[in-house]
Amino acid sequence: METKKKKPRYDFILILILAVAGLGILAFAFLTGGGGASVEVSVDGRIIAVYPLSDNREEVINTPEGKNRLEIKDGRVRVTDADCPDKLCVNQGWISMKGQSVICLPHKLTVKITGEEAPESKGADIVVK
């Protein structure tokens, strides 16, 4: 049974829909993004620390599963080192826009940029300038 019969192919439409939807999501991410003001660090969904993005600093985050080293510099943040097996969080590089995040799945750690100025101290290691 050869399937050589001429059937109309709508591949193009499907791919177009997918591409447009993808661009839509990207646009949405951009629009809801914008400049961030602080870095929110959470482990397993609980916020453990908030740092202002304007501070240049390095922090070591201890999670039950391991350590991640954060670097905040020039309004951007990245994970510089981690003892997780895959180092995916390190590979994600710098983030600076509101809503962006670096996620370390093995440690259940998320580093997220929020638009709010560093609010009331939620972590023990907030440093007052």
């Binding site: 993808g22 949405f28 991410a29 809801t32 969904g45 809503g99 995040s101 996620i103 259940k108 997220k112």
Partner: peptide
């Protein structure tokens, strides 16, 4: 699971 709202960045790239 992670309850993070930076998820749209992630989704748009992975898309």
């Amino acid at each position: 699971i992670l309850n993070t709202d930076g998820i749209f960045w992630y989704l748009s790239v992975l898309w």
